[in-house]
Amino acid sequence: MTLRSGLTNPLTLAAIAILALLAVGETLSPGFARGDQIVRLLTVAAILGIVAAGQNLVILGGREGIDLSVGPMISLGAVIAGNIMAGANAAILPAILAATAVTFLIGIVNGLGVTLVRIPPLVMTLGMTAIVQGGLVVYSQGIPSGNAAPALMAFINRPLVLGLPGILFVWAIIAVGLTFLLRRTAFGYAVYAIGANERAAMLVGLPVNRIRCLLYGLSGFFAGLTGVCVIGYTGNSFISVGDQYVLSSIIAVVIGGTSLAGGAGGYIGTVLGAVALVLLQSVLTTLQLENYGRQIIFGMTLLVLMLLYGRQGRLRV
């Protein structure tokens, strides 16, 4: 690997960005890079990272794959989980199952719209956003209800083993599991194949539509799981709690080096992308800038990151 290709490798670059942001944060506010602060940042990154896992799969699957409906699905997952738990530890498992099952099915509907009706993913998931939001208003009648069980809140906010909260272990398991799935199983190779060249994948006999449907279903599943984490993190939920994750999940995937064109990239990059994004937001908060300054720097940083390695190939005759 030459120096140049090393520097333009998304994984290296994201790692450098993370170290640089930590250094900047520590300089601006001593104690920024302390152990407990880093654990807190990683917890926030884990919540983003879990929804970005689904987003990553949908984007890898190609044909302009994208899931804008993760926001309301997170909110829905949080509201369903909160209502089933209602503060009782015994109901945590049923709550997780119900929340993820419902959002998985919504994801499958997205997948059917994209594959069978051939609606562009951006439009399908945008339409689904309005429907799930509307469904949430009907379900909750606009009143926040339900709350997290104490054990779930402890699992996400309190140290479990080695000073780390349980959610970080869940995230690690997802990262290892998803990377194994993508790199070492037939399903994973099929995902890359349909993302890189759908026609070729179809000609070798891959069930392209079924795989793509499943990817959207998995995106729903991860969004529902994120919803459970969100309510465990904050204790209660409101019907737009997931909105902030829609574009940040896409950005985490892009910063992590997965191409929006599909077929190239992976989840380890997205993990680093989620950490870098959360760190950046945290550094900008530490700067105590006015709101506009934070926004401008945040947008500029995204553009610079994309300029470094998000560029597309040059057209040639």
């Binding site: 892009v254 929006l260 947008g299 995204l302 553009l303 560029r311």
Partner: peptide, 29 residues
Amino acid sequence: LVAVLRLQAIVTTFATGIVFAGTALFVLP
């Protein structure tokens, strides 16, 4: 950014949108 520097339109215009919105807050808080 999109046509000359070859960035993907969807992420780029989202990012420039953040910058424009921040500038709007700067002009009139």
